[in-house]
Amino acid sequence: MNFEEIAVKSHEFVSQYLNGAEVGREVDLFATGMVNSLFAMQLVLFVEREFGFAVDNEDLDYDNFRSINAIADFAGRKLGLGATA
């Protein structure tokens, strides 16, 4: 799996929660108002199940979840994919 594939899957997941509105990969998800405890936990479970690693205590950083590209970057780092787009 590469960064692009991770970003596509993350985009697909996040889009489910925006009532059909298009969301760019760099859009600040926290600014959309969609981030609540429910979404936060669903996102953690999605990342863990889809990409196969555990989101740990030290991963709790807004910059890891701020946008679709940020999620893909974070997942890429956890998977050891190195530099991304």
């Binding site: 981030v35 609540n36 405890s37 429910l38 936060a40 936990m41 953690v44 205590n57 030290e58 709790l60 950083d61 807004y62």
Partner: peptide, 17 residues
């Protein structure tokens, strides 16, 4: 537990679930 800023959303979210 967790990090500051993630208390309710993540720790609380996991616990309440």
């Amino acid at each position: 537990l967790g990090r500051a800023g993630f208390g309710f959303s993540h720790v609380g979210g996991a616990a309440l679930d």
